[in-house]
């Protein structure tokens, strides 16, 4: 079986500080995996390496058996590894519908050079696809609002929605619930997980809230000082002593 994502021996140092120290991880399609760890433990560095924002000093990354180490973000994206961001990376001045249309056109046409300079971006086909995402992510009510007019949570949904349009094989969500009001976090994650339920995708999300982790993750990968401290089924991993001591802070 070919793994959705496989990282082997990733290393990355910033000015001597090891942000990733021999990180090896395997994720299969259909899994929902949470990445946890203190700030600076190496979670975001890992996501940034996988998605091509950072180049690892050494190690390899494969997706569906294809090596993607050191490729550009847009190349990795086209190979089915997509991501959302801690701070939503959306087009503030465009309406939510237009935001999704940009993404839809990319999903339909691929690279920029295949985009038509004359064909209407909001053609029926594209609009249908955008509509479908608007509905799935419960964004219909705001379709004509500009992205900078809607709440932080709505922008986060849009961000995830845009990453989902091209049916990725691997979806990395960088702190999806940060910036979402605490009483809306579960509702937010429900929307996201329901929207992804029919996708054939491996989901990885960085999360600090252990309630969210327990509720949504099948498996947890714990980072500590650039290393993988624990990797296993959610409760097993969270119950390890060193995880409690270093990460969840619930040690007796």
């Amino acid at each position: 079986m070919i793994e959705a994502l496989e990282a082997r021996g990733l290393k990355k140092a910033f000015n001597g500080v090891k942000a990733a120290d021999d990180v090896s991880v395997v994720i299969r399609s259909g899994e929902i995996v949470s990445l946890i760890g203190a700030n600076g433990a190496g979670k975001t560095t890992f996501v940034n390496m996988v998605t091509g924002y950072l180049k690892p000093d050494s190690g390899t990354i494969l997706s569906q058996g294809r090596e993607i180490t050191g490729l550009k973000p847009r190349e990795i994206t086209r190979l089915g590894v997509c991501r959302s961001f801690q701070i939503p990376q959306v087009f503030n001045d465009l309406s939510l519908e237009e935001n999704l249309l940009v993404a839809v056109n990319v999903a339909l046409k691929g690279a920029a050079r295949s985009h038509s300079p004359l064909r209407n971006a909001g053609n029926r086909n594209a609009r249908q696809m955008a509509d479908e995402i608007l509905v799935r992510f419960k964004l219909e009510d705001y379709r004509h609002n500009r992205a900078n007019e809607v709440s932080g949570g709505t922008r986060k949904l849009l961000d995830v929605g845009m990453a989902t349009i091209s049916h990725p094989r691997v979806l990395l969500l960088d702190e999806p619930t940060s910036g979402v009001a605490s009483n809306e976090k579960f509702a937010f994650m429900d929307v996201v997980m329901n929207a992804l339920a029919d996708e054939e995708v491996a989901v990885m999300f960085i999360e600090h809230d252990m309630d969210i982790v327990r509720r949504y993750a099948h498996r947890v990968i714990v980072f500590h000082e650039g290393r993988v401290l624990a990797d296993g089924a959610t409760e097993d991993a969270l119950n390890q002593d060193d995880v409690k001591r270093y990460v969840t802070g619930s040690a007796a």
């Binding site: 847009r74 087009f91 503030n92 940009v102 300079p117 971006a121 845009m162």
Partner: peptide, 27 residues
């Protein structure tokens, strides 16, 4: 027609967020 087109819309989004465009797969 260009400003309303696929290419035109993608271009209009450059100023807001280049990172998102790259992570959608566009140059």
């Amino acid at each position: 027609l260009y400003t309303k087109s696929e290419m035109g819309l993608a271009s209009a989004s450059v100023k807001d967020c280049e990172i998102r465009l790259e992570y959608l797969g566009l140059s």
